[in-house]
Design a protein around this nucleic acid. Sequence first.
DNA 1: GGCGAAATTAGACAGAGTCCAATTCTTATC
DNA 2: GATAAGAATTGGACTCTGTCTAATTTCGCC
Lengths: 147, 147
Amino acid sequence: MNAVSTSASVRPEDERASLSEVLRAHGVGPTHQRIEIARALFSRMTHLSADQVLAAVNQRHAETSKATVYNTLKLFVEKGLVREVIVDPTKVFYDPNTSPHHHFYDVETGEITDIDGDRISILGLPALPEGKMAAGVDLIIRVRSSA
Amino acid sequence: MNAVSTSASVRPEDERASLSEVLRAHGVGPTHQRIEIARALFSRMTHLSADQVLAAVNQRHAETSKATVYNTLKLFVEKGLVREVIVDPTKVFYDPNTSPHHHFYDVETGEITDIDGDRISILGLPALPEGKMAAGVDLIIRVRSSA
DNA sequence: GGCGAAATTAGACAGAGTCCAATTCTTATC
DNA sequence: GATAAGAATTGGACTCTGTCTAATTTCGCC
Ligand SMILES: [Mn+2]
Ligand SMILES: [Mn+2]
Ligand SMILES: [Zn+2]
Ligand SMILES: [Zn+2]
């Protein structure tokens, strides 16, 4: 039940129209740049850094500025279209998968892999601090090549 | 069972001597700067950023450079004296508590609080990817003020 | 088409962290 | 305690991620 079909045989025009609707459905006015940024994320369904999004969007010829990529990613996070993944101390990754899930993080290669959220249960959590509510539960399994 | 007594009534000289031994025990040659950095972390037992360590160590009068703070924190991590905590996209925190445990992270204030490791169990984890070994399990509960 | 609001942009800026070659310390040996 | 070789420290330049701003362009609507 994801935002956008990932099927390979979708005409680019249809894909953009459908992304446009997804943006509107999340209260984001569709613009050329926002659609391209959404396309970079949702057509790949991988975890991309801002820099990688910028490169992806400007692959054919420059279309979108760095400022817009940062503005747009922040907006997408606010509107719940994507999620931030904080695993690497040097950069944030953006995750088009917004269903609750966790991550393997390869500390050597930087690769991030999803762990399905509803197979995991976390027991024994203490009560939240007074007056605080949960805003997210991030479980990160850091891995590296064995041997 | 921590590395260094946190009791208030320890003579500064004794504290430094004892830190010196802790460093040696971890294969770290003790120097004036390293001892002061260790003292900043272990006397507070809180989660400090490199910048906070730098400020703490240079409080009375400048003693230690930024380069040395970064060099030393990296060395301490390698030698298992402290642990990195990656929760804030803008900076790394260093944790003098190396026993397995998890964290509350207040996204509004930046406050980091420990969650005892052996009360928590995590069930349903999938097998690690082929040829990979676990290098760490980080559970972060992001919280914010309710209402 | 024309208008006001919203979005985009270049480029300056900020902050965390790295790097390097020159200098200063440690430590082992005598 | 003096000496010498290796180890650690240092200022400052540099890189990288991310932010900000004021000017321009585009969008949604009449
Ligand atoms: Mn950084
Ligand atoms: Mn950053
Ligand atoms: Zn994910
Ligand atoms: Zn901790």
